[in-house]
């Protein structure tokens, strides 16, 4: 923290409060570090980064699909290729994320006041499931039609059928391409910022910092 911040009076503007809080909790050398503890050299973290890379592929290919439209990606060879990039990117995204999740679970990664990092990871997993399911609903084929009516029965059974209509492709399309990617992206950014702020959890047998 800069020395002048310690001496100034308590700010009243929300911008100054936010700036001071950011600089206190996540200074730039913590946000963009050039060294890491030795135990960060683990394949489990590579799978975390691979998850973000797969998410990037999904976003870029999804943007192309959105702009070109189903008449393109269902018929042309390039469109089918980009559609496949999107689909297989999702498959790899889940494989990478689940391996990362398993690793962090057995590392008990919530130790040392890192429960928010763990919870944002879980939230990202749940948001990903919702995003993937809405993706299956907009394939515009018999498979998506079958899934939509099964899901509609499920929503009705739990009493929320008035709010979610999976057979309405307009509703599901907007949820899939606009709302859920933004939610998932925001959760992912929050997760990475918490990793930067709190650091990576040390191994269980070498954790003197205390507190669970």
């Amino acid at each position: 923290m800069s020395s002048h911040l310690k001496n100034e009076t308590e700010p009243t503007m929300w911008t100054a409060k936010l700036r001071n809080s950011w600089q206190r909790n996540l200074p730039i050398d913590k946000l963009l570090p050039d060294t890491q503890p030795a135990y960060v050299a683990s394949w489990i973290y590579i799978f975390g980064v691979l998850t973000i890379a797969a998410f990037g592929d999904i976003i870029v290919s999804g943007l192309i699909l959105s702009f070109a439209g189903p008449a393109w990606y269902h018929t042309s060879s390039v469109g089918l290729f980009v559609n496949s990039l999107h689909f297989w990117g999702v498959q790899l995204f889940f494989v990478f994320m689940v391996v990362h999740l398993w690793g962090k679970f057995w590392m008990a990664a919530w130790r040392g006041r890192r429960f928010r990092t763990w919870l944002t990871g879980i939230a990202a997993f749940l948001a990903s499931i919702g995003t993937a399911f809405t993706g299956y609903l907009i394939q515009t084929n018999f498979d998506s039609q079958w899934i939509a009516y099964e899901a509609k029965d499920g929503f009705n059974a739990v009493g929320i059928g008035a709010f979610f209509t999976p057979t309405n492709i307009g509703q599901i399309m907007l949820i899939h391409v606009a709302l859920l990617p933004l939610v998932l992206g925001a959760i992912t950014v929050w997760h990475v910022l918490l990793v930067r702020k709190n650091g990576v959890v040390p191994p269980i047998d070498a954790a003197p910092e205390g507190g669970n």
Binding site: P33, T35, Q36, P37, A38, A41, G112, V200, V201, E209
Partner: peptide
């Protein structure tokens, strides 16, 4: 070695 531990952020 342990020399890589210098950047511990926790």
């Amino acid at each position: 070695t342990d020399s890589q531990t210098s950047g511990d952020q926790s």
